[in-house]
Design a protein around this nucleic acid. Structure first.
Length: 920
RNA sequence: AGGACCAUAGCUCAGUUGGUUAGAGCGCUACCUUGACAUGGUAGAGGUCGCCAGUUCGAAUCUGGCUGGUCCUACCA
C-alpha cells in the first residue's frame, strides 16, 4: 500500500466492479426499503445540491442494504419540459433554425436525439459520487409506461371532474409563449416609477387622479375604483370618466380592496391584465379587454395607433402622449416587485387564455389529512407548517403548457370546438360514437412537467399495471428532498398519489438544506461562485476554474469581478480530495436540515481522515502478516484489558451511529465514526497494541492482539461504508483475507452487529485511568519542556486500591505511552523535589532533579490551583444555598458534594506540594 | 404584511427532554521527523453562549420582548 491515500484509481475500479456485478439491484428479503430518486433534469449536470442529496440517499440505501432489507433505490430522470425545450431551441438557433420552421414532429425527434446522445451526463456524474441506485430499472418520465400513467391519470381525473378546461387569467411568459404556474414565477424588487395620471370626468367637471406602475394597461381599463368610505370621492361614485387616448367612458365604482392611503386612493381597473383587477372585475361584472397578444404586444382590441407596439414601447409612447395632453400629474420613483419567468427571465404578463386546470382544493383535503394524522411525517417536523400553510390556501393548478416537449394532453376537438377526453383518439371516437368522417384534432398543449413527476413513486414501478414491484416497493420509505420543491413536487405527489393509488407515496419526507458558498451566498452561475462537486473529487487548476466560471455568462461585465474573487479564494485551484472525503463532508454538515455553508477547510480535514484510515490499515496489515485466522479460532483467548476496552468503545460507537441513522442525523453518525476511529482506535488502541506486540507475548496473545486489530478495523470499515464506500471497500478487501471471512464486496456484508455483552464498563474505567495518568504526565512534560527523548521516573502517592489495580493491569503501557522509565509508590518517606500532577486524586510526581525548572513548576501549579479554586468556590456557593439543597434532586446534590470533596482534596494536595517547593 | 429559521472560540458548526469545568474540525502558539500517517504526534492559548427581562434552587437550553441576519408566502395599484 502507498503511504498516502490515492482515491482516483480505486474509485473507478470499485465502482465498475459493483455495477458490472449488479450489486445495486434489490435482493429478496422479508422487509423492504425503497427510495425514489428525485429525478434530475436530463439536461442537467451535477451540482452541489445534487451531490449533497444523492450522498444522503446513498448512505440511507447502503445502510439499509447492509441491515438486510430488500432495498430499492429507483433511478431515473425527468424530461423537464421547458428546460429541455429551451436547450434544444438554443442549439437550433445557433444553426439558424427554429422549431416552428421544423414542425412539431421533426422538432420532437430532435429533442429525443439530443436526449439520447447528451442527456445522460448527470447519471454518469452520479456514478462518480459512488451512488448505488438500481440502474437496471432506470426510468425516464417520457418512457412509454410512464406516459401511459400520465394519460390514465389525466383521463380519470377529468372523468371525475377534477380536471377542467377554462378561460382564466394565467401567468403568461411572452418569450416562451406559454402559460406557467404560480410557482414558476419569481418576483424580485426592481426600481420603477409610479405614474399619476388624470382621468377627466365625462361630464367635464374636473378629473380624478389614478396612480399606476403600468400606464400602458390603461388601454384595457374598464373602471376606476375608490374605497367606499373615502370622503374625497364620495360625490363622484356612479359618475363616469372619459378614458384618455381611448375615448371610452368607464364607471367610478367602490370596492373594499382599494387602499385609500396609497397613491391617490383611486385605482384604475384592468380586469384582463391584473389578478386583483380580474377579481374585482368578476365582483362588479366589468368587461375584460385583452389588449395584448401572445408576444405581449398591443392587440387589435386597443385603439389603432398602438396596435402592434411592444408593451414597453407602448408605455413610453402613452406616457409621452399623456404628458403632451397635460394629463400626467407627476412621476414618482417607486420600488415594485416585478414578476419574471424563472426560466426565461421575461416579465410575466397576466393573460386571458384557455387552459387546463386541476381542482387542487379537492385533492388537497386528503393530502392535508395524511400529514395531520401522521401517515406522512416530515423531518424536521417544522416543514409541516410550511406544507399546511400552502395546502390550506391552494389555488387551482394550471397544468397546460404551450410547448411541444412533454406529454401531450389527451383531448380531441371536432371542428365545432367540442372537446373529448380519452386515452386515445380511437377510444374517444368509440366512446362518443364519432364516425371516421368527422375530423378530430388533438389538443396542441402538453402537460406541466410536475404533473408526471407527481406520479413518480408509482409510475416508475409499473402502474397502472398491478405489478409485483408496485406491491413490493410502494409506498416508498422516505423522500429525500430540498425545501424549495415542497410545493412544486412533494405536495403534488401526495395529492396525486393518494387520489390515484389510494396510499401515500412515502412515509417520511427528509427535508435537507441548501448548499451555499463559504459566505452563505446561494451558488449560481451569474454570481460565479459555483463549485462543481466533480472538481472537489478530481481537483481543478486555477486556470480551468477561472475559465469555467467566466464562460458563457449572461452578464460578461461580471467576468472580472468573478476572476478576482476566485483567485482570492482558490489561489492554487482546488485539490483533488476524492469522493469519500466529499461525501463525509456532506454528512458532517447535514445537521437538522439547515442550510450549509460549504467551507473548503472541512473537506480538507476529512481528506486527512481518509489518509488516517488508510495508514491505520497499513499499520495493522503490516503487523498482521503472520496472523493465522485458523490458528486463532482454535485457541481460547480471553481478551486483555486493552482489547476489552476497544471492543467496548466500538460498541458505543455503533450505538451512536445506529441512533443517528434512525434520526437522519448524518452529522452525528459521521462524528461518532470519526471520533471512534481517530481518537480511540488510532490514538490509543494502536499505540497500546504496539506495546503489547513488541513485549513478546505468547503466540496465543499475539494472535489475540492481531485478531483484535484486524477485527475492529474490519467492523469499523463496515460501519463507515455507507458514508465512505470506496476506501472502505478497498481496505476491506485486504483485511477480509487475513480474517478469512466475508463475501465478494463490503457493500453486501451486514452492518456490524451490536453486542450488549461487550459493553465493558470495567475496561472503560481502566482505560480512563490510563488516559488520566498519561494526560497528567504529558501535561508536566509539555509545560516543563521536557524533551520527548528524555525518559523520566514517576512516583505515585495517595492512591486508593483502584489505582493499584489499574496500575498493575496497565503498567507496561504507561511507560511507553508517556516516556516513563520507572513507576513506584511513595511510602511514608519524604518526597523528592518534584512536579505534581493529579489523575483524579492520585498524585503523580515527576522528580525535578536535573530536569525541571523550579520556577516554571511554581507557575504551573499556580495556574492549576487557580482553576481549582474558581471551581471550588462555585461548588461551595451552590451547596451553601439552602434552596438548592432542599429543592434539587438528591442525586444532583450528592454529585455536587462529591465534587466538592474531590476538589478540596486536590486543592490541598497541590497547595502542600507548592508550599514544599516554595521552601527550597 | 404574515410566517419560519438562525445568532455558541478568529472561521465552519455540535451541544436530543434545564444540572458538563460549554465541545469538535480548521486556523493560531510551542515543542517533536520516535518504524502507520507531517494529509502526522504532544501540549497550549482562545468563549460574560446576540441584548434585556422573566420562570426556576439552577438557563447556552424554557417564556416574552428587542436587535441583527437568512429565507418562504402574499402583496399597494
Amino acid at each position: 500500500m502507498e503511504s498516502k491515500f490515492q482515491p482516483a484509481e480505486l474509485e473507478r475500479r470499485w465502482y465498475q466492479e459493483w455495477e458490472s456485478n449488479s450489486y445495486f439491484a434489490p435482493r429478496p428479503a422479508e422487509d423492504t426499503y425503497s427510495i425514489m430518486i428525485p429525478p434530475p433534469n436530463v439536461t442537467g449536470s451535477l451540482h452541489m445540491g445534487h451531490g449533497f442529496q444523492e450522498s444522503i440517499i446513498d448512505a440511507l440505501i447502503r445502510y439499509h442494504r447492509m441491515q438486510g432489507f430488500d432495498t430499492l433505490w429507483q433511478a431515473g430522470t425527468d424530461h423537464a419540459g421547458i428546460a429541455t425545450q429551451m436547450v434544444v431551441e438554443r442549439q437550433l438557433a445557433a444553426e439558424g433554425l427554429d422549431r416552428k420552421s421544423l414542425g412539431r414532429k421533426t422538432f420532437i425527434d430532435k429533442v429525443w436525439e439530443w436526449k439520447e446522445t447528451s442527456g445522460g451526463t448527470i447519471t454518469q456524474q452520479l456514478r462518480r459520487l459512488g451512488a448505488s441506485p438500481d440502474w437496471g430499472s432506470e426510468r425516464f418520465t417520457m418512457d412509454p409506461g410512464l406516459s401511459e400513467a400520465v394519460i390514465e391519470t389525466f383521463v380519470r381525473l377529468h372523468d371525475e371532474g377534477l380536471i377542467y378546461r377554462g378561460k382564466r387569467l394565467v401567468n403568461w411568459d411572452p418569450i416562451l409563449h406559454t402559460a406557467v404556474s404560480d410557482l414558476e414565477v419569481v418576483s424580485e424588487e426592481e426600481k420603477g416609477s409610479l405614474w399619476h395620471i388624470r382621468y377627466p370626468l365625462t361630464d367635464g367637471d374636473g378629473h380624478v387622479t389614478v396612480a399606476t406602475t403600468r400606464p400602458e394597461t390603461m388601454l384595457g381599463d374598464t373602471a376606476v375604483a375608490v374605497h367606499p368610505n373615502d370622503e374625497r370621492y364620495r360625490s363622484l361614485v356612479g359618475k363616469t370618466i372619459r378614458l384618455p387616448l381611448c375615448d371610452r367612458d368607464i364607471p367610478i365604482i367602490t370596492d373594499d380592496y382599494v387602499d385609500p392611503e396609497f397613491g391617490s386612493g383611486c385605482v384604475k381597473i384592468t380586469p384582463a391584465h391584473d389578478f386583483n383587477d380580474y377579481a374585482m372585475g368578476e365582483r362588479h361584472k366589468l368587461p375584460k379587454i385583452n389588449i395584448f397578444d401572445e408576444n405581449a404586444a398591443i392587440s387589435a382590441a386597443a385603439p389603432a395607433p398602438y396596435q402592434g407596439l411592444d408593451r414597453f414601447d407602448a408605455r413610453r409612447q402613452i406616457v409621452q402622449e399623456l404628458q403632451d395632453a397635460g394629463l400626467l400629474e407627476r412621476i414618482d420613483d417607486h420600488v415594485l416587485k416585478v414578476p419574471r419567468g424563472d426560466r426565461s427571465g421575461a416579465v410575466i404578463e397576466p393573460f386571458l387564455t384557455d387552459q387546463w386546470f386541476v381542482d387542487a382544493k379537492t385533492l388537497a383535503k386528503p393530502a392535508i389529512a395524511a400529514v395531520q394524522d401522521g401517515a406522512i411525517r416530515f423531518v424536521p417536523q417544522q416543514w409541516e407548517n410550511t406544507y399546511f400553510a400552502w395546502m390550506n390556501n391552494i389555488q387551482d393548478w394550471c397544468i397546460s403548457r404551450q410547448l411541444w416537449w412533454g406529454h401531450r394532453i389527451p383531448a380531441w376537438y371536432d371542428d365545432n370546438g367540442a372537446c373529448y377526453v380519452g386515452r386515445s383518439e380511437a377510444e374517444v371516437r368509440k366512446a362518443h360514437s364519432i364516425s371516421d368522417e368527422i375530423s378530430l384534432h388533438q389538443d396542441e398543449d402538453v402537460l406541466d412537467t410536475w404533473f408526471s413527476s407527481g406520479l413518480w413513486t408509482f409510475s416508475t414501478l409499473g402502474w397502472p399495471e398491478d405489478t409485483e414491484r408496485l406491491k413490493r416497493y410502494h409506498p416508498s420509505s422516505v423522500l429525500v428532498t430540498g425545501f424549495d420543491i415542497i410545493f412544486f413536487w412533494v405536495a403534488r405527489m401526495i395529492m396525486l398519489t393518494l387520489h390515484m393509488k389510494g396510499e401515500v407515496p412515502f412515509r417520511e419526507v427528509y427535508v435537507h438544506g441548501l448548499v451555499r458558498d463559504g459566505e452563505g451566498q446561494k451558488m449560481s452561475k451569474s454570481k460565479g461562485n459555483v463549485i462543481d462537486p466533480i472538481d472537489l473529487i478530481d481537483g481543478i487548476t486555477l486556470d480551468s476554474l477561472l475559465e469555467k466560471r467566466t464562460a458563457g455568462l449572461m452578464q460578461p461585465q461580471q467576468a472580472e469581478r468573478i476572476r478576482k474573487a476566485t483567485q482570492r479564494q482558490f489561489p492554487d485551484g482546488i485539490n483533488a480530495y476524492g469522493t469519500d472525503a466529499l461525501r463525509f463532508t456532506y454528512y458532517s454538515l447535514a445537521a437538522t436540515g439547515r442550510d450549509i455553508k460549504f467551507d473548503i477547510g472541512r473537506i480538507e480535514g476529512f481528506r486527512n481522515f481518509c489518509n488516517k484510515i488508510w495508514n491505520a490499515a497499513r499499520f495493522v496489515l503490516s503487523n498482521c502478516e503472520d496472523f493465522d485466522a485458523a490458528a486463532f479460532q482454535q485457541q481460547q483467548w480471553s481478551p486483555a484489558i486493552a482489547e476489552r476496552w476497544i471492543e467496548a468503545e466500538l460498541q458505543s460507537m455503533l450505538a451512536r451511529v445506529t441512533e443517528a441513522f434512525e434520526n437522519y442525523r448524518f452529522d452525528l453518525a459521521s462524528q461518532a465514526l470519526y471520533e471512534f476511529f481517530w481518537n480511540e482506535y488510532c490514538d490509543w488502541y494502536l499505540e497500546l497494541a504496539k506495546v503489547s506486540l513488541r513485549d513478546a507475548p505468547s503466540m496465543k496473545d499475539r494472535l489475540g492482539i492481531q485478531h483484535t486489530l484486524l477485527d475492529v478495523l474490519e467492523r469499523s470499515l463496515r460501519a463507515l461504508h455507507p458514508l465512505m464506500p470506496f476506501i472502505t471497500e478497498d481496505i476491506w478487501q485486504r483485511v477480509k483475507v487475513k480474517l478469512n471471512r466475508g463475501g465478494p464486496s463490503i457493500m453486501l456484508e451486514a452492518f456490524p452487529e451490536r453486542r450488549a455483552d461487550r459493553e465493558d464498563k470495567e475496561a472503560i474505567e481502566a482505560m480512563a485511568w490510563v488516559k488520566g495518568f498519561a494526560l497528567a504526565v504529558r501535561g508536566i512534560r509539555g509545560e516543563m519542556n521536557i524533551p520527548p527523548s528524555k525518559r523520566v521516573p514517576v512516583l505515585l502517592r495517595a492512591g486508593v486500591d483502584a489505582d493499584r489495580i489499574f496500575l498493575e493491569q496497565t503498567e507496561p503501557f504507561l511507560k511507553d505511552l508517556v516516556g516513563v522509565d520507572s513507576i513506584s509508590w511513595l511510602t511514608g518517606e519524604e518526597a523528592p523535589l518534584a512536579a505534581t500532577g493529579l489523575a483524579k486524586n492520585l498524585e503523580i510526581l515527576v522528580p525535578l532533579a536535573g530536569i525541571i525548572d523550579q520556577k516554571a513548576e511554581l507557575r504551573r501549579l499556580d495556574k492549576e490551583l487557580d482553576k481549582l479554586r474558581i471551581e471550588l468556590e462555585r461548588v461551595e456557593k451552590k451547596l451553601d444555598n439552602q434552596s438548592f439543597v432542599s429543592k434539587a434532586p438528591a442525586a444532583v446534590v450528592s454529585k455536587e458534594r462529591e465534587k466538592l470533596a474531590s476538589l478540596k482534596e486536590a486543592t490541598s494536595k497541590l497547595e502542600q506540594q507548592r508550599e514544599q517547593l516554595d521552601k527550597i
